[in-house]
Nucleic acid binder design. Sequence first.
DNA 1: CAATGGCATTTGAACGTTCCAATCAACTCG
DNA 2: CGAGTTGATTGGAACGTTCAAATGCCATTG
Lengths: 348, 348
Amino acid sequence: MPRSPNAPSPKAGPVTLAMVARRAGVSPQTVSNALNSPELLRPETLERVQRTIDEMGYRPHRAAQTLRTRSSKLIGYGIRPAPGNSAPVMDRFLHALSQAADEAGYRILLFASPPGNASLDGHEELIDLHSVDGFVLSGTDRGDPRQAWLTKRGIPFVGFGRMWSGRQLGDWADVDGASGTDAAVEHLVSLGHRRIAFLGWPRGSGVGDDRAEGWQRAMRRHGLPVRGRRAQSVDDTASARAAVAPLLDTGATAVIAASDMLALGCYQALRERDATPGKDVAVIGFDDSPTAALLSPGLSTVAQPLEAAGRECVRLLLARMSEPGAPPERVLLEPSLVVRDSTPAPGS
Amino acid sequence: MPRSPNAPSPKAGPVTLAMVARRAGVSPQTVSNALNSPELLRPETLERVQRTIDEMGYRPHRAAQTLRTRSSKLIGYGIRPAPGNSAPVMDRFLHALSQAADEAGYRILLFASPPGNASLDGHEELIDLHSVDGFVLSGTDRGDPRQAWLTKRGIPFVGFGRMWSGRQLGDWADVDGASGTDAAVEHLVSLGHRRIAFLGWPRGSGVGDDRAEGWQRAMRRHGLPVRGRRAQSVDDTASARAAVAPLLDTGATAVIAASDMLALGCYQALRERDATPGKDVAVIGFDDSPTAALLSPGLSTVAQPLEAAGRECVRLLLARMSEPGAPPERVLLEPSLVVRDSTPAPGS
DNA sequence: CAATGGCATTTGAACGTTCCAATCAACTCG
DNA sequence: CGAGTTGATTGGAACGTTCAAATGCCATTG
């Protein structure tokens, strides 16, 4: 029993391209063109088809598109539990990434990367099974087999974070940590500080060395000494508290820390010696973790532009997909100093 | 120019079911059955087909499966930036969820939920476009339009977290906060504490009230007074520090906090009055955020079983999918007390 | 006026899988 | 010994889309 071609389907089934076509009085291909190559249609026809699409609430079925075009509009992201207290950073980055992807008509497909191991199985599966169009890699701190592997297979990818060791492969977007600590020094100098110390992570971590570098170069630029003004600690407060002590002993009036966690250690060290952070000694952290705003005094800190990072990753990835042979593009994003209450003028 | 049926394809193209079939000398359908209903095949045939599949490295193309079966093996998850310092919790939950999904042959598809608004557009799109099989909802703290909407449309979903207001719809898995604070009281009582205070969030948040409840019931069980032993504060340390003062004034020897953030406020309040947390006064936090382990003294805290939560969410969702009409199932997971250095015996 | 070319649209096939019904051989049973 | 039953396998169609090529139309052109 054929039903009238224009009757709205009584049973709520998914609207297909063919249904739209019939109703608009054109062929399925024309409807497809209306969506993918509207310039091919006569304006009049285009308008009619588009109206019909809207009326019927038609949405193309992605699986069918994927099957035909071999592109899934999916971006793979290997999630792993963030080490230390960098979870807030990754959380916000992931959100930004997802949002930027959405706006470009893509979605993020997660897969659980085993914590330690940067295994490739997951990626392989994603490519074969889901026809993932590309990957965003994060935590590419150390030489990372994934990059070489993806390069060889010709799968587009973009890193969030530079590769600090080994040959640089492919595109990445990263936050310019050196610029962040440089700005921190500038801020402190403008307040009148001269004895500005740096509390960093043990050397050898690319990210940490980068942040130290910015402090050093800004100090040099201002003709301020760096000798004896630098200490290092792993990322926990107890250790930081101990490490920062000698810096305070030698009369530092300000401490720039490589992370908010380390900055919190400074707070504790100061309280231990009955000094008040943000009053007797200025402290600046890094990451603008949620905790920073909630500490008292509020911790001045270098905020990473995570929304921009997410956007850039998507942009670079899309560019790579459309032009696989283009030379790699690298983007360094400027972090911004968030000034709160922990950075007073010295001796005030 | 037809090429020998058994020659391994010279150009690396994707291996399809049909290729496997030809090589194994069976029909495509038989290969399909070997994967989906192996019990239909004669053991001998099954073995041969499976060997061929392995040899050729065949993987079924998900888009084709989705198109045919209308099931994508995808689970939607609306990611939103975690408020306060709960990012670590969500980060670990998401990882656990992804892992549990992987193990069940599913993957997590992210979409960016606008921060404030619990808009439905995203869900609708995910269903229509990607044929998402179901959703995991988190942050269902307040009455949530999504649940009613999904229920009406017959889309399977599971909540991570109870719905605290409004009618309970659907399945959920949640952490038994009351049980966590109850256990905290037990621990402190066993150490000899009697004057145990609770520092919570303002009343009205389901999660917070739940945690308060556990403290209260355990105190009552032990015949200990709760009057004047309870304070509330929003989730930041400055506010917590102020709020906890009256509790300390009235001689509490232990404080249980509704979050690690609040516990950190206690630490600060104690230091302010030259008392040592974990020595003069015991402190217990909630969430086992990464910070807790790094504080000094190490903060005893109630850890949420996030891996179990992820697993349960997947399990419940899968159960709902296979039996849409089954009565709702709710799972309360037991948190566990992580004892560190902040909980000594009183007066020790 | 037949041939040429450009434009708008249509036709037929294909992507890789699974559903449904059909086939075929080997057994069982009255 | 033929009809029915079971078990293993196959054939054809369909899911919804886009690709590549074909069609029809109209205006130009030699």
